[in-house]
Design a protein around this nucleic acid. Structure first.
Length: 364
DNA sequence: AATTTCCCCAACCGCGAAGTT
DNA sequence: TAACTTCGCGGTTGGGGAAAT
């Protein structure tokens, strides 16, 4: 309730900070510490509102801030955490020492999010999006040529995405590879009747409203990794999971029968408990965000991938409840027919539920 | 070289939660 | 318990630099 008065109304300065202002703020906080942001600017001799001072300090001047490019490790961690926490940037930042929520949010919106989209991964649900499958790029990758695509290990996707759908996606690729031997692919969706009536029903409304949408352009992540080089992750542990195109059903009606809220036991096998040192980096405001130990002790959803941080993957992705709709960001292309426009259709195929055993609140 | 477009990121805005009176 | 204050979070904006034309 209530709100602090706007800076404008007090005639306070806005906009970029000068070096002098920075120095004043640093000097004051060095001497007196921070807190009571409302009175701080006055005491520090700054013509700024407390909010602005706090933001400047927490996002820029704080001595423990790590500046510079995000490491690959950090990127992976962000993705994995985002799959669990959604747009809880402060919670994500709490687990990335030296990074601020603002920095992570910016990095997500400007880099990671776009990259996931290009890779055919829904940045909100962290699920592969069949509607975004970009087979040409996948097929051109050495990864694919080596038949080493390992969808089940896609970071952040492997846990709750319906395994049959992963098979489906894999099979799409297999089938397309087959057809590539004869001619350039991507024109066989209809011919091969790969889309079930269910799928077609989901396509239908969008296709009607956007007849120009290319039905053949389907994108699957070559690897849920930011590494653009061929993935080196383990191949499918069970090659049988890679369905041959010939085995692929002519329709997917069986998907209707799949339990939407079940997590196959084999999907939990890759998980080990969280490392015990899940703590944060100092700032008092984040101390409350330490990982709940009860979770780390009981969860079976920690990935055993090389990432030392989170491997919870998309177990607790932020599907429909995500506060940020796909099209909420400026990177979301509006207007013409784009890959983003295709985001909506068929996505229901990848819906999944959070198992009851997990309490999302443990992460908050 | 000039202009336009794109992209990034620091900073702002508004809301809700938590704390205080 | 209601009213008010303060703080923190997430979404958005816009200035400026880079890239493209």
């Amino acid at each position: 309730m209530g709100r602090s008065p706007c800076c404008d109304k007090n005639g306070l300065k806005k906009g970029p900070w000068t070096q002098e202002e920075d120095q004043k703020l640093i000097d004051y906080i060095k001497k007196h510490g921070y807190g009571n942001w409302r009175t701080l600017p006055k005491n520090a001799g700054l013509q700024r509102c407390g909010k602005s001072c706090r933001l400047r300090w927490t996002n820029y001047l704080r001595p423990d801030i790590k500046r510079g490019k995000f490491s690959f490790q950090e990127e992976e961690t962000i993705i994995q955490l985002h799959s669990i926490l959604g747009n809880k940037w402060s919670a994500i930042a709490a687990r990335l020492p030296g990074r601020t929520d603002n920095e992570i949010k910016n990095y997500w919106n400007t880099h990671i999010r776009k990259r996931l989209l290009r890779m055919g991964i829904d940045p909100v649900t962290h699920s592969p999006r069949l509607d975004l499958l970009d087979l040409p790029s996948i097929l051109s990758s050495s990864l694919y040529n080596q038949s080493q695509l390992n969808i089940s290990r896609l970071v952040g996707v492997n846990s709750l995405v319906n395994p049959d759908l992963l098979k489906l996606a894999t099979s799409f690729m297999s089938s397309q590879r087959e057809s590539q031997n004869h001619k350039f692919l991507l024109n066989n969706v209809d011919e091969n009747q790969l889309c079930s009536s269910q799928c077609q029903n989901q396509y239908q409304p969008l296709m009607e409203s956007h007849p120009d949408l290319p039905t053949e352009v389907i994108q699957l992540p070559a690897c849920y990794s930011l590494n653009t080089s061929p993935c080196t992750v383990n191949p499918f542990s069970n090659e049988a999971q890679l369905l041959n195109v010939d085995q692929f059903p002519s329709n997917f009606s069986h998907l209707d029968n799949l339990p939407s809220n079940s997590v196959p036991s084999n999907l939990t096998e890759d998980y080990v408990p969280l490392p015990p040192n899940y703590d944060y980096y100092g700032s008092d405001r984040h101390n409350q965000l330490v990982m709940d130990p009860s979770f780390s002790n009981t969860s079976n959803f920690q990935s055993n991938n090389s990432n030392p941080s989170f491997g919870l993957a998309s177990v607790l992705s932020t599907p429909s409840s995500s506060p940020t709709p796909l099209n909420s960001n400026s990177t979301y292309i509006n207007g013409s027919s784009t890959e983003d426009e295709r985001d909506s259709y068929c996505s229901n195929l990848l819906n999944f539920e959070i198992p009851d055993i997990l309490d999302v609140n443990d992460f908050m």
